[in-house]
Design a protein around this nucleic acid. Structure first.
Length: 364
DNA sequence: AATCTCACCAACCGCCTCTTA
DNA sequence: GTAAGAGGCGGTTGGTGAGAT
């Protein structure tokens, strides 16, 4: 018997959030920052449970969330990461800072799982050609899994280095203080990437960076389609392109002290966002998302972070275990050590099916 | 034009972990 | 050491819109 749900109380509202509720929540978080969710309903007067507030913020209102179609690159990343980590969506989301775990989970369940199955069907046909023995002993299976893991790791390495520009170079830029505040700066080294990033930005929905912005957006939104007021569609996702660009400008202008959260998560476009994992501009140099923090939109100050699995690069940039592991491998860490690490990681999973499949597919 | 089916995704539910008293 | 509660996470559901019949 689990705990009683926190929202079991009478008078707690459920269902889609209204624009008004969004505004209240955003302005509260602008004022107090994310966290202490328990006090949010009482402080704001929202008839929502704290969990619901947190989810609304994390999955929708948090700055820096990219909406819209996943790029091929992101898809690849998810495939690789899912193969490595299993259904740990929060962990996967920490490598795609502009996507929420919920988004990735949804995308996996609706698109990628299907793709995987299709590929799997093809693979089964291949296996029917007796390449795989009828019964694989446990030892054989483990060895095979280890090979799969190794291959998946290599694939991830490749995926991580899609951008021709090395992370170290980008870091050097940072060190030299040549990085602009433009979130697309990292991609701008490569004109195509830059343009892709820009077009990506304009095609994806905008996000709220301040209560004022939202209020202004809602004003226009309400004028255009009053019917939407009661629908489940969020105003933020129904903005016209005109309003979007306007919002973007306002948002860029709102990079003030009060909006440090926005600044810390303000990168856009998948590639640029991904680059940002390894490169730092002036506004992010002292911050780094941890597994759970990134999903929460809460970037812990490095000084405040607990002793963790993270280590520092020579430039003082913390690396997650996975990143460190990848880089270490390139420096010649034994494959056994890597496999041991991953096996330890994988042993925590009880849903190995999908991700062993995915790992197998990476062999193709 | 009406109805049905399917895909998508925001939000909910319940369990687990961590923190605090 | 323990219990209670908050936060976090992954699985699932239900409302909605788009496309097919």
């Amino acid at each position: 018997m689990g705990r009683l749900p926190c929202c079991d109380k009478a008078g707690v509202k459920k269902g889609p959030w209204t624009p008004e509720e969004d505004i209240i929540l955003v302005s509260y978080i602008q004022e107090h920052g994310p966290g202490n969710w328990r006090s949010v309903p009482t402080s704001t007067g929202l008839l929502r449970c704290s969990k619901s507030c947190r989810l609304r913020w994390t999955n929708y209102l948090r700055p820096g969330i990219k909406r819209g179609n996943f790029t091929e690159h992101e898809e690849k990343m998810i495939f690789h990461l899912q193969a490595l980590l299993g259904n740990r969506w929060a962990a996967i989301a920490s490598y795609l800072p502009e996507r929420t775990d919920n988004d990735i989970k949804n995308y996996w369940n609706t698109h990628l799982k299907k793709k995987l199955r299709q590929q799997q069907t093809g693979l089964e046909g291949f296996y029917k050609g007796s390449r795989i023995p009828q019964s694989i002993t446990k030892g054989q299976w483990e060895r095979r899994l280890q090979t799969d893991i190794h291959m998946a790791k290599r694939a991830l390495c490749e995926a991580l280095s899609v951008d021709t520009r090395s992370p170290l170079l980008t870091q050097q830029d940072t060190k030299l203080g040549t990085v602009s505040k433009d979130p697309f700066h990292h991609a701008s080294a490569n004109t195509d990437n830059y343009l892709a990033a820009r077009s990506c930005e304009t095609s994806s929905s905008t996000y709220a960076s301040s209560a004022e912005n939202i209020a202004r957006l809602l004003k226009g939104w309400a004028k255009r389609s009053p019917v939407n007021q009661s629908s489940s569609l969020s105003p933020l996702s129904t903005l016209s392109a005109q309003t979007k660009s306007e919002t973007r400008t306002t948002q860029e202008n709102s990079f003030d002290n009060r909006s440090s959260i926005v600044a810390a998560t303000g990168s856009s476009s998948s590639d640029a966002g991904f680059d940002s994992l390894f490169s730092f501009n002036s506004s992010t140099a002292h911050m780094f998302p941890t597994k759970s923090d990134s999903a929460n939109g809460c970037y812990r100050l490095q000084d405040e972070s607990k002793p963790s699995l993270e280590t520092l690069t020579p430039l003082g940039v913390p690396l997650s275990l996975l990143e460190k592991w990848l880089l270490d491998d390139n420096c010649g860490v034994s494959a056994q050590a890597i496999d041991d690490h991953l096996m330890r990681d994988l042993s925590l999973d009880d849903d190995g099916d999908d991700h062993v499949e995915a790992a197998s597919l990476l062999l193709q």
